[in-house]
């Protein structure tokens, strides 16, 4: 849920990075954290297992500039991608304003991508969100791997509605910031138009 604070002149929004396990959601946030000016970001928090898999969520507060004297602040969260953490995913989706779906381009992860996408739809719908209209961006990550599925095939499978989408190699930072800016822009436009 967006939060407009007139006292501190801030517009705060929540963006959740969703997708299958080991797809690169945390890597996206880590790249953003590593490549943002200190004054524009807060501390990055990772609640992870001993094997560095996301247990509950990662969190990164980020400022993307000002509009009309209002700071635009985005709270970036990731969900745990592993199938059995569904209860945690539902909790983290509460109050979400925009979604980045991080798909894994490896051919053996195609089913996991589709399963995660369906899980996203179920979890958003169960919380009263209109899945069709909530701002969403798809990122095809790991485009550098040898067994990457053809982009056209991935698009047909995951993006029949032609949502904004981006190719990425998150570990190198490719495509990470354009993905973020796209979803942030959609969130603000959606917020403006749906009041």
């Amino acid at each position: 849920m967006s939060f407009i604070n007139w006292a501190s002149r801030e517009i705060n929004c929540k963006i959740v990075y969703y997708g299958p396990g080991l797809g690169g959601k945390t890597t996206n946030l880590q790249h953003i954290y590593d490549n943002t000016n200190p004054e524009a970001k807060g501390r990055m928090i990772s609640l992870e297992t001993e094997t560095e898999r996301t247990l509950f969520f990662d969190f990164l507060p980020l400022s993307l500039g000002e509009i009309r004297g209002f700071k635009t602040r985005f709270h970036l969260y990731t969900v745990p991608g592993q199938v059995f953490y569904d209860a945690s995913r539902k909790l983290i989706l509460k109050g979400v304003d925009g979604i980045v779906f991080v798909a894994d381009s490896q051919v053996e992860r195609l089913d996991a991508n589709l399963e995660s996408w369906e899980n996203l739809e179920d979890n958003l719908s169960s919380q009263g969100y209109d899945f069709e209209t909530i701002p969403k961006v798809i990122q095809y990550n790991k485009r550098d791997v040898k067994n990457a599925v053809e982009l056209a095939y991935l698009r047909r499978a995951l993006n029949p509605n032609l949502l904004p989408d981006f190719e990425a190699v998150a570990k190198d930072g490719d495509g990470v910031l354009p993905t973020l800016k796209s979803v942030a822009k959609q969130v603000l436009i959606h917020l403006k138009r749906n009041q």
């Binding site: 929540k14 928090i45 509950f56 983290i92």
Partner: peptide
């Protein structure tokens, strides 16, 4: 608020990361 947004605060929190605290307590409550 339950989504982790800090409405207001009062007290001596010099160098304290109130944004992280808000996010973590919201996760805790959830």
């Amino acid at each position: 608020d339950r989504d982790g947004q800090l409405l207001t605060w009062s007290g001596l929190l010099k160098d304290f990361d109130v944004v992280s605290l808000a996010s973590l307590t919201a996760g805790n409550m959830a």
